[in-house]
Amino acid sequence: MRLHLLALLAGGPAHGYELRQALEKLLGEAYPQPNIGQIYVTLGRLEQAGLIAGRHVSQSDRPDKRIFEITEAGRAAVDAWYETPSEAPRVRDDFFMKLALAHRTGRQDQINLINKQRRHYLNLMRALSRMDTGGEDGGRIASLLIEGATLHLQADLDWLERCQEELE
């Protein structure tokens, strides 16, 4: 969340609720919405790290608010984030470890585990297909996020099929 907030602040100063609204507007239901408390805790940490600077703004009809602005160090962190490729393949997958250890420990049938995981992935795919993509830009960004998640799930389903073929 640190870098997501920094990237939003690179577009201009904002307070916590504006940042949350920006994420909601951009991604709609496609992305789990952050808790406002989590946003403010993260903003505090970013400020302590010198990546953003905050200032109080008085409001006559509401409580004062704190507006945050990105610093040069924050801009450098965002630039580095954009330049760094995202995570490597998932070789430390929790399900894979369950599958690998099930036979060895005798605690669970491997095919049963595969079937449970398959049902879970199919339920996730159904939930994704029902999501509202009414985000920014006519929902294009949210649609791409949903499509990417669906393709990952399909690849996981294909891999589960391969595991089952190998283990039967």
Rank of each mutant, 00 (worst) to 15 (best):
I70K: 03
A142N: 04
E165Y: 04
L5A: 09
P63G: 15
A102C: 12
D132K: 13
E87W: 03
H15C: 12
Q164F: 02
R2Q: 15
E24D: 11
L46R: 05
G16H: 06
Q21E: 14
L151T: 07
G148Q: 06
E161W: 01
W81H: 11
N115T: 08
D61S: 13
E87C: 05
S58W: 12
R62N: 10
P34M: 11
H4K: 12
G135V: 02
W81S: 01
R90F: 06
F95T: 04
G54V: 07
G11S: 09
N123Y: 01
Q59W: 13
R75I: 03
T150Y: 06
Q164M: 10
N123F: 03
S60I: 13
Y17L: 14
G148K: 00
Q33K: 10
L9A: 05
E24R: 12
L124M: 11
C163Q: 15
I146F: 01
E18A: 15
F95N: 04
Y31F: 12
R119F: 10
T42D: 08
R90C: 08
K116N: 13
Q38S: 15
E166R: 07
R107G: 03
D156M: 01
L9I: 10
A10D: 09
G37M: 05
E166H: 00
G148V: 01
L151G: 01
A7W: 06
A100F: 14
R130H: 12
A49H: 09
Q21F: 02
R2W: 03
Y40C: 05
T150I: 00
W81M: 08
G139D: 07
P34K: 06
P63M: 07
D94Y: 06
Q33Y: 00
I39N: 09
R2S: 14
L19G: 01
L5R: 01
R45F: 05
A80T: 08
D94M: 06
L27G: 03
D79W: 00
D94I: 12
R66S: 04
L6N: 08
S60F: 11
N123H: 04
R162P: 00
S60A: 15
D158T: 14
G148H: 07
L144T: 05
R119D: 12
A73L: 15
I141H: 01
R2C: 01
S143E: 15
G50P: 10
P34H: 11
A7L: 11
T71N: 06
T133D: 08
